[in-house]
Design a protein around this nucleic acid. Structure first.
Lengths: 343, 343
DNA sequence: AACGACGCATGAAACGATTCAGGAGGGCTC
DNA sequence: GAGCCCTCCTGAATCGTTTCATGCGTCGTT
């Protein structure tokens, strides 16, 4: 019942504790014959290392945690997969924690992770204000890497995508297509990503000296349902005031808009063009494939994981870095139809 | 730097080790004044429990693992969320591991989890043959609960949804709508769910004594791309031989089919009706909202977690159970148009 | 023959928490 | 005031691993 321990293995193989440990950790320092005896003992006893003891001795664990806002959001699942690759290749283990956009849950998770002395934490924090909990982790020597939150602080690394540029790309595209009345859908504006994407869109209009009308419709969150709701409001406008294009803060909203418009007989893109953000898998698979601003999601995860491992290994000599990726516009059918210039 | 330990706390508060431990674990056995002194020492020293030491002593950890086939699949993310609720409510922690449908990765994960002496494992195994790795875990006293794999073995609990019934529901619906040529899309058939759903569909045809023609098109996996590919093959058939309805083994395939058909000018549901499976969020949000067989995904996760905790606590007195949920057909536009009876 | 070097193996000493048998002191009963 | 119970606290023993100073041969060099 009680799993065999290293001592029993030693006794069974007729060697000392230290030798078994050496077989496990530095096999080449043990004579082949002895090594084999030990290995045999291990298999016949069904010995399995006890990680708690290992960690206790080592003072730190071999697991890395990632705390995401929503495990069910395709954006984050892809980030997780990217991080996973790097972490597992390094022989460590990635545990995924879900804050569900809830600060209290986030804090509970971080406390548990601290008790576990995890090797490091990748996190997209719920709040983007000052973060005493994170600072505490860092003081304790647990590296923290911010994921997808631009302005990293001085005591930690960060990876992010240039959301202002993303907004600019989307808007430039819509302006190129000849649109003049354009709506930006997203919210709440307290979310940095939502605000930045809008700022980029506005900057694009301004830089061109365009007379285009860009207005914002704030949604309560970033879900499909919010998109449907926003579309209803657009449809309530008289046709001549209705935007001919909408730029959505993420693809879930865009999909909601698409669905509602199609259901009401408004055609995409001929009546209304749509551009989303994130380029999740379901964007290209929508019945009217969705134009979207692609973020290198798995790269984001990979880069974050690499920074973390680097910091964990190099220790004090580490210099914090802030990696920023460039987004990329993917034009698909939902916005691919130049509009005859008219007002 | 090195985090304070319980000994320093004891010294700082002028008490013994045991007292500090009591404050932490049995606060009411310590006199209020002493307790407060200890708590003060804890905060001033910034003491954080060391979970490794705790676990080593206790012999087991307070974390539960869930091993899923694909973290990015909306079906599994919802199962995870369900399990999470129960596990966290019990003061434990859920770690999510991704096997990516790869048996080797699954095994590596299980080995690591065993080293960590996790409290239990929820798993949707990659293979449904005999599972020596899982048996080994169980022998070691680590409870295992199968998720979404019907035929649980005698030494473990399981939760599942009746896939045969689900297939039957879908097919009954399509037959009711007057369809006579129907295709089942899914694969590989070695996946129990894929086979069971087909079995249900076939049984429905037979039980009615229907003359309907149900044929299977096997896909290589269960993704959107596979659905698109399958749709292309359907379109290669002459119209008079082409199925008027397709039943897909999951929603990702169904979305792929929908996209490809729409892109080729085939209308859904009037030319071809579609029914999917899982009822993921994007099913209802598709441009032609998708009929689908709904599985109680979060309940699945919750039930699995509850069985696990129960087993972990009751120990030997535990009797393994196999919970089976009923699926439910959700009819949406993609199949909601009775067909004039004709052959 | 003496010496160092080297290869292997040893086992005691950590790591930090929990547990538990036991002790100190105070108050109560008879 | 003896005996007893209670409350509160103590500290050694324990969990299983890793590490490291040490020991013991053997071999090659001088």
């Amino acid at each position: 019942m009680a799993t065999a321990n290293i001592k029993e293995v030693a006794r069974h193989a007729g060697v000392s504790l230290g030798t078994v440990s050496n077989v496990l950790n530095r096999p080449d320092t043990v004579a082949p014959a002895t090594r084999q005896r030990v290995l045999d003992a291990i298999t016949t006893l069904g010995y399995v290392r006890n990680d708690s003891a290992r960690q206790l001795r080592a003072g730190r664990s071999r697991t890395v945690a990632i705390v995401v806002l929503d495990v069910a959001n395709p954006f984050f699942t892809d980030v997780v997969r990217g991080a996973e690759q790097v972490i597992e290749a390094a022989g460590a283990m990635l545990v995924v924690c879900n804050s569900g956009e809830d600060g209290a849950r986030e804090r509970r998770h971080l406390e548990l992770l601290e008790e576990q002395r995890v090797r490091g934490v990748l996190i997209t924090p719920v709040d983007h204000g000052p973060q005493p909990v994170l600072d505490k982790l860092i003081e304790r020597g647990i590296p923290v890497v911010l994921v997808d939150r631009g302005t990293g602080r001085a005591n930690r690394c960060s990876v992010a995508v240039d959301d202002v540029l993303g907004g600019r790309l989307a808007m430039d595209h819509l302006l190129d297509q000849g649109h003049h009345r354009i709506a930006y859908l997203g919210g709440p504006l307290t979310i940095a990503q939502v605000a930045d994407r809008h700022a980029g869109a506005a900057a694009a209009v301004q830089d061109r000296g365009s007379t285009a009308d860009l207005r914002v419709a704030v949604t309560t969150n970033l879900t499909v349902a919010a998109g449907r709701h926003a579309a209803e409001e657009l449809l309530a406008l008289p046709v001549r005031k209705r935007p001919t294009a909408v730029f959505c803060a993420n693809d879930l909203i865009a999909l909601g808009v698409l669905q509602e418009l199609t259901a009401r007989g408004v055609r995409v893109p001929s009546d209304v063009a749509i551009v989303g953000y994130d380029d999740i898998e379901f964007a290209g698979a929508a019945a009217v494939p969705l134009s979207s601003v692609r973020q290198p999601r798995d790269q984001l995860g990979r880069a974050a994981a690499e920074l973390l491992l680097e910091e964990a290994e190099s220790g004090d000599t580490h210099r914090h870095r802030h990696v920023v990726f460039q987004p990329e516009l993917v034009v698909r059918r939902s916005s691919d139809q130049p509009r005859r210039t008219r007002r």
